[in-house]
């Protein structure tokens, strides 16, 4: 038998070796008609529509989009990046929760995470830099939308939701800032809490509610922890769902300048 080059071998392997698996009843029960993972998928306009239409992705994307909308230089993919970073932060955040107690042990837990947990340091770094990145990307997304005038009718209200999402992102980042329970965390949050205390009329009450006391203690830590891992994610997911839905309902991506 003649020797095959690597490329030929790859082509041959990809041609039909997986068909028995891909055509099995089990596989066809998972992948809906039109999925590229199904046996006999061919690149046709009909199948291209089915990829989206018969997929959970249909909740996010229409079957067809305006040609200018797929130009990377138009949106820079910033909205999608924000969402992606949120997902990355959720996954790494859940992972971090396994090793973290929002008590006096918090600092020791972070130290143990960095020194004795496999990939602990990497995941913590990803969570932290990802959070900073998300604040930045969400803000850039807002600026991009502003400069394109994409907030104009009929997208006014989606802009309002977007502003709410920006603030929720900031709150998420800020509440997470306290959790390592080191000097950087506690004093940054103290500064932030003091800013909130300048609110007219209710200043002292807001600070008391935020800190669960007069200053940042482990009670504050627990409060910020619950806000960070449960409350704000819950709220932001609802607003994100409306935000994405409105993008579709308000006529997809805005037009070029």
């Amino acid at each position: 038998m003649a020797k095959l080059t690597l490329k030929e071998r790859f082509k041959k392997g990809a041609a039909g070796s997986g068909d028995a698996v891909r055509g099995s009843k089990f596989a066809t029960s998972i992948f809906r008609p039109g999925s590229p993972f199904r046996k006999g998928y061919s690149d046709s306009p009909r199948n291209r529509s089915y990829v989206v239409m018969n997929n959970v992705l249909y909740h996010l994307h229409p079957v067809k989009v305006k040609r200018h909308g797929v130009r990377l230089s138009y949106t820079l993919c910033l909205g999608g990046m924000s969402f992606f970073l949120f997902i990355v932060l959720t996954i790494t955040g859940i992972w971090l929760m396994f090793y973290f107690r929002p008590t006096e042990m918090a600092y020791a837990d972070i130290q143990a995470l960095q020194t004795s947990v496999a990939f602990g340091s990497l995941v913590r770094n990803m969570h932290r830099w990802g959070a900073h990145l998300m604040v930045l990307v969400v803000f850039l997304h807002m600026s991009r939308v502003f400069y394109h005038g994409a907030y104009k009718a009929p997208r006014e209200f989606n802009w309002v939701i977007g502003v709410i999402l920006l603030f929720l992102t900031l709150f998420l980042s800020f509440t997470g800032y306290l959790l390592p329970w080191d000097q950087l965390a506690i004093w940054a949050v103290t500064v932030g809490g003091n800013m909130a205390s300048y609110t007219p009329v209710f200043g002292a009450q807001i600070k008391f509610g935020l800190f669960a006391g007069l200053e940042a203690t482990t009670a504050t830590l627990l409060r910020f922890y619950v806000l960070h891992v449960l409350f704000f994610p819950f709220i932001i997911v609802i607003f994100m769902a409306i935000h994405f839905w409105r993008v579709r309902k308000d006529g997809g991506i805005s037009g070029p300048l």
């Binding site: 990355v88 972070i110 770094n125 830099w129 329970w181 000097q183």
Partner: peptide, 18 residues
């Protein structure tokens, strides 16, 4: 993000002390 996290260590100062 992975590259950044592999290179740059997130800060962790001394334990919080009011």
């Amino acid at each position: 993000l992975i590259l950044l996290s592999a290179i740059l260590q997130a800060p962790l100062l001394e334990e919080a002390n009011p």
